[in-house]
Design a binder for these strands. Sequence first.
DNA 1: CTTCCACAGGAACCAGCGGACC
DNA 2: GGTCCGCTGGTTCCTGTGGAAG
Length: 394
Amino acid sequence: MSAQNLFSSVGQNRIFRNRSVLVSDFIPLSLPHRESEIRRLAQILSPSLEGTRPNNAFMYGLTGTGKTAVVRYVSNQLSKEALSRGAAVGLVYVNARKDDTSYRVLAQVGKQLNLHLPFTGLSVAEVYSRVTAHVEKLSCTVIISIDEIDSLVREPNGNLLYKLTRMNSDLSKSRVSLIGITNDSKVLDALDPRVRSSLGEEELIFGPYDAEQLRDILHARSSDAFQDNALGADVIPYVAALAAKDHGDARKAVDLLRKAGEVAERLGSERVRTEHVQQALSEIEVDTALEVVTKLPLHSKIILACIADLYVKKQTVITGDVFALYLHTCKRMGLEVLTSRRVSEIINELDMVGVISTRILNRGRFGRTKRIALNVDPEHVRAAISKDDILKTT
DNA sequence: CTTCCACAGGAACCAGCGGACC
DNA sequence: GGTCCGCTGGTTCCTGTGGAAG
């Protein structure tokens, strides 16, 4: 995004009325096609207004199906209602991908209840007891929503969830309820059976949106987001159809619509058209890839550069070749090298962020390895990497 | 049918940092 | 000031494995 794009159009915007409606963490005033889930969750949580403990709940659904939005929406409403009734309800929302250790989750819970905790230095047990004591002192009902809870089950110190479900036995004046949110159906199986049954007191399942529902969602948002008549009539159906093919992810649909608006704006167009959507689609891919690549640590960049190098020359790129070239490159640059174990891990990380994709390949006599394919234009990789001073000479 | 390759990926551990507590 | 802690970003050592070659 250029500086021109950032400032030149401020105050004289022909496309957007309020762009922020289309950023992903915006909580809309209404959530079309999630009314029944909202009612259900509200019903589950309503005992908190009368000082009794709501059942724990577990919410499952693919990304962009509105789980997080529903939780935040209901939480907002509940906290307003609690305020007006004078009910003591504490609402906590934690994203376990961001705060991905027991310590950090607990610290986050404490922080949102106005308990200051240092980010390190204490033992997990100490943080747990401080949080518990604090909750007890508040004498209220605390509802803790843990989003992307799957990040927590694999944690070595992984009995946090068990401890949280049992926290009530350490409390007398206060109560704690948990809402677990995930998009990974396998989590349930991996969970400690005691946690599973406790969390599964209530279950909400979020199905993917179909194209028609996505259209409604986009319509609802766009009337606030765009100027009148700034949106071509076929744009929303087009975006909705694209997103519906892609697992009905509403977040992606909204992102795409915003990006299309930005493209139209940048091109000086008076209204958004489907061509802008197409361009937005390819820009989103390039943008995210580029952004990811520039932020990569040095050795990850080198490895990615090696992969890109090999990829343009060969049809199949393989871990061993990458490692060999990596060793050579490091030696040439006078850098110390990482082990093959670590390099293998970095390749997995690159796969995870999406710039490459890998598949395990069994070549019989010639061993088992990984075939690596580059997901982005090698030139883009080169461009992004060459911004790094150390790598400039290569 | 057996062998054996070229790694994948799990487990345990470690150094070094920023920090709390007494 | 010494002892504890969590976390990152590694290392070392290890066991596991699908299927072409022999």
